[in-house]
């Protein structure tokens, strides 16, 4: 939710995820914001971090795609290959 993400429609994606989270019974899902992840041209972007697994970055999202990711990946544990960019984290320090 940096300026770049918001300009590309991140609020709609956030709203969809908030709604899906409320609809589900999931007690172990934390929805949090973050800011510019660098690849501004592929925003809106969502990262799913599951304990013990590499984080998965999704790009070029819409509200609809976000709902699909929520049900298939967050609840179902299956990576949605068509909108996933990559898994893992960046080189810091």
């Amino acid at each position: 939710m940096g300026t770049c993400g918001i300009a590309a429609g991140a609020r709609g994606v956030m709203k969809a995820l908030t709604e899906e989270l409320e609809k589900s019974d999931a007690k172990d899902v934390l929805l949090s914001i973050s800011s510019c992840a660098g690849l501004c041209s592929r925003e809106p972007m969502v990262t799913i971090e599951e304990q013990g697994k590499p984080a998965v970055k999704y790009v070029d999202l819409t509200a609809e795609k976000a709902r699909k990711i929520f049900s298939e990946h967050v609840l179902g544990g299956r990576i949605v290959n068509d909108c996933a960019l990559a898994a893992g984290s960046e080189r810091t320090l």
Partner: peptide, 8 residues
């Protein structure tokens, strides 16, 4: 499997 971030 989707690529590793650092290989992109």
């Amino acid at each position: 499997p989707i690529p590793e971030l650092r290989s992109i």
